[in-house]
Write a protein that binds this DNA or RNA. Structure first.
Lengths: 208, 208
DNA sequence: GACTTTGTTTGACAGTTGTCAAGAAAATTC
DNA sequence: GAATTTTCTTGACAACTGTCAAACAAAGTC
């Protein structure tokens, strides 16, 4: 839903320009959102932390939800393919596991604000209906992502997944969310703990 | 942290009265918070949905965080012992499993707002440091709760848990959170799905 | 029954929020 | 290079926020 794009009589090159402006705004907004969270982030705060004025935000986005919604969808396109390379290039189960866990702890550490924001927005979507379609879409993407990994893992070990895709996603996501929440209090040990726990769990998700 | 209780020169009976008032305020606040979520709930909204005026809120709580903090701790005392009876009375693994799952789907359905609020607050705690100690405490309580169930389950099946307590909690919590988020969109099928998925997973958390 | 303590109401404050509109500036078109 | 369209700035608005304090009511104390 939302995010009006067409409706402007401008020439073709203008649409691209508008889209690029939108992306710039979204990137700036995501930075602020990641730091402050949904509840504490205002349009003015977003504008202040960017090179734009608060009026511009309203020129490119109908309202706040439109902006957030756009941000969420923009963000999704950058993250759900994170493990694709690992899945495609791994030639053994161990290689896949270490590659997967390496990338996962890496994004946990390097993109903490984005993950915090994601769990925040998913929680908000329980109260704000307008966010629900976007959140649902991302959840599906992430579920598919986990499923690709697990399928490949099963292939490489000569086994088959012993849980369905939604279950696998919920389990892995539970561990990852725990790590994201715990990372603030304990940034040193959390990545290793996550790795350890996923290593414990992964073999249990397949059966010979 | 927070929630000033002593510091009042009142007589003993007065403290109880104050505490009872606090509880009444907290219960009212929890109702509103559960419906609207943390971000959209203001002190005035809380007061409006109660028999009190917004001034009273400030008479019993130093500020907003103090109130929320109190609410969270009050809420926790009512929920982390939810499965104790089932754990103590079950005489077989099957009985324990069905009892546990029954209670879990029941609370999912009957106390949805509270669970939504919990996940919301946990997300907020990533951005609001003052909430962190309370959230951490509840998380520990819930972890212990899950661990009691899993231990008993292992006893009754003559096995031992194959994952540690934080892992078990993260896995079960992942499934439950998925159910809470999904419940809004699909209240009919979600409880059954949760039951099914937990039934798949539970046996995998123990080894002979 | 006067007096003090405790509890509550009410109204106000300063700040912030999302939203919008009028007009300046820049870009584009002819 | 004038006219027009697109982009941006600025300032304003109404509503809402957390907080507080002064006036008021109730209860308890001597």
């Amino acid at each position: 839903m939302a995010s009006t794009a067409e409706e402007r009589p401008a020439r073709v090159s203008g649409i691209d320009k508008i889209e690029r402006r939108r992306v710039a705004l979204a990137e700036s907004a995501l930075k602020t959102l990641g730091e402050l969270g949904y509840a504490r982030t205002s349009l003015r705060e977003i504008a202040n932390n960017s090179e734009f004025t608060h009026g511009v935000v309203h020129y490119y986005f109908r309202d706040k939800i439109d902006l957030i919604s756009y941000c969420v969808r923009y963000y999704k396109t950058k993250c759900a393919r994170r493990y694709d390379e690992v899945v495609e290039t791994a030639t053994s189960a161990a290689e896949l596991a270490t590659g997967f866990l390496g990338k996962m702890t890496q994004t946990l550490v390097e993109e903490t604000p984005m993950h915090k924001l994601w769990y925040d927005l998913r929680a908000q979507s329980m109260f704000e209906e307008q966010l629900r379609p976007d959140v649902e879409e991302i959840d599906k993407l992430l579920e598919a992502m986990i499923w690709r990994i697990l399928s490949r893992y099963a292939d490489l070990t000569g086994t088959t997944p012993s849980v369905d895709a939604p279950t696998a996603y919920a389990l892995v996501d539970g561990l990852f969310e725990q790590a994201v929440v715990g990372y603030a209090a304990n940034p040193d040990k959390t990545p290793a703990l996550l790795t350890d726990r996923l290593m414990q769990v992964l073999p249990k998700l397949v059966t010979a």
